[in-house]
Nucleic acid binder design. Structure first.
Lengths: 195, 195
DNA sequence: CCGGAAGTGGAACAGCCGTTCCGCCATGAG
DNA sequence: CTCATGGCGGAACGGCTGTTCCACTTCCGG
């Protein structure tokens, strides 16, 4: 399938995606289509030519972000230190959720999007299972903690993004530490890797 | 100022508040005014006569729920067992957040409501400070844990209400246990009071 | 029981939203 | 350079929302 479309059309598509990416990350997935078009410097018709429905635009933008999560997960799987792999995953997840509202709503939203990324979700789940299993085998997590506990913690961190932006970062940091404290076994590692 | 309003007007007001209470708890604070009026069996004009703006209706309904939280908090302050007082507060908070979406959105919402309940929030905060301080003095919480940590945990529990209803209860339960595990010092008490 | 005022229902208004339509314009093959 | 055609902007449509308006109904003091 060759790209038979005109050069200006392709350029406009790029500008739309870029505008959507920035706007969704800053203001969430519910920003009006008009606003995205305005930020991209095009009319709404142009936007709808490239993405026939709002959902398609959202899905396209989210696919990029979800892939970035996959990359981080694969890096963690390559880490030889099981506790660092797990705790880094938690902390980087928190960071990502703080800085990208689109990703946040994708994870917590009403589920209509979930269908589109079921595959990625499964992979992420399985990777987390492996990370927790390794940490347990190494004795760095408390007895009785399983991957579902960690998942609950991650969801909680994500959910906290709804707080007013002033306190948000600090509260999420505290929660992340608290969850790591709840997970880890005693006197084996510090909560956070010190850089 | 005597109640000079007609009897039917007063009855209608009650019906509106009752309908709003149920609807807000089940479907959140954003249900259309028409829907509340329909459930109350009145026209929209009746609704607007008693509550000139949407915000006033919301505030009225929330005031009841917030007061219920205050009652629970005072009961906890009377509990002679510091760890039971604290853990019960966390678990009952989770329960309340699970069953009332209005209360949930009031706590996590965009902050326009926060102004109306600043006083209650302060009282709740101070009570939690006392509960944590007592638990620390009794040696039942881990060193370095303070009231802000517990508050972060509570917010996290509240935020999880956005999950799809199927998994919600279970995930919140797991998180509550995880947070209690992160808070408590070792080998002093079981996570949950066994009934 | 009666009359005026308080109370009411539902249509109507204004302002958002996603999406579609249509007359005009730039592009790039020949 | 020409001109058919794919692409474009912005007005317009239909459906949702909170809120207002007004002709009609119901209450209750005398």
């Amino acid at each position: 399938m060759p790209q038979k479309q005109r050069a200006d059309a392709r350029s406009n598509r790029e500008r739309v995606v870029a505008a959507a990416r920035e706007t969704f990350a800053a203001a969430g997935l519910e920003v009006p289509m008009r606003e995205v078009a305005r930020r991209a410097g095009v009319g709404v018709a142009t936007l709808y030519r490239h993405f026939p429905t709002r959902t398609e635009l959202v899905t396209t933008v989210l696919a990029e972000r979800v892939e970035a999560c996959g990359v981080q997960m694969r890096r963690a799987l390559d880490d030889p230190d099981p506790w660092r792999a797990l705790s880094t995953t938690v902390l980087e997840f928190a960071d990502r959720q703080i800085h990208d509202q689109a990703l946040n709503e994708a994870l917590l939203g009403s589920g209509d999007l979930s269908a589109a990324f079921q595959q990625e979700r499964r992979e992420h789940t399985q990777a987390l299972n492996v990370l927790v299993a390794r940490a347990r085998a190494a004795g760095t997590v408390r007895d009785g903690v399983d991957a579902d506990d960690v998942r609950a913690g991650l969801l909680a961190i994500a959910a906290l993004r709804r707080l007013p932006p002033t306190a948000r970062g600090q509260v999420i940091g505290k929660l992340a530490d608290l969850i790591l404290a709840g997970i880890r076994s005693q006197r084996t590692h510090p909560d956070r890797p010190r850089p």
